[in-house]
Simulated assay, not measured.
Amino acid sequence: MPLPEVFELMIRTGASKAVVCDADQKLVGMLTLFDLLTAPTEAAPSPEELAAVPAM
């Protein structure tokens, strides 16, 4: 399930945690509402992108 759908479901149901399973339904982790609220919204810059920033 895509993260936006997980977030919506958690908000709608009042859940603060969700289990994360692989394709075989084996538990691989937990996801919390805090994780979703504090996650970066954009991808982190690559080392090449950081190196391209001119120094002052």
Rank of each mutant, 00 (worst) to 15 (best):
L36F: 03
A51R: 10
T13I: 06
M1N: 12
E42F: 08
L9F: 04
E5Y: 06
L3N: 03
A18L: 07
F34C: 12
M56N: 11
K17N: 13
G14I: 06
T41M: 10
V53L: 08
V28E: 05
D22T: 05
E48N: 06
T38N: 07
V20G: 04
P2L: 04
K17T: 15
L27G: 05
L31V: 12
P4D: 06
A18G: 02
V6C: 04
D22G: 10
L33Y: 05
E42N: 08
K26T: 15
E42G: 01
L31P: 00
E5M: 09
M56W: 12
G14R: 09
P47T: 01
L9Q: 10
L9R: 15
E48G: 06
E8R: 11
V19C: 15
D35A: 04
K26Y: 11
D24R: 14
A15E: 14
R12W: 04
E48L: 07
R12I: 00
P45G: 06
A55L: 09
T32K: 10
E5L: 12
A52I: 01
L37V: 11
L37S: 11
S16Y: 07
E5C: 07
V6I: 07
T13Q: 12
I11Y: 12
P45F: 06
A15I: 08
F34R: 13
A52E: 08
L3H: 02
C21F: 14
F34Q: 13
A15R: 14
R12M: 04
L9M: 14
A39K: 13
T41F: 09
V6Y: 00
T38W: 01
T32C: 13
P47F: 02
D22W: 04
P54L: 04
P4C: 07
V53G: 04
M30T: 13
G29V: 05
L36M: 09
A52F: 00
D35H: 03
L27F: 12
P45S: 04
A23K: 12
T32Y: 13
E48S: 09
P4E: 03
A23S: 15
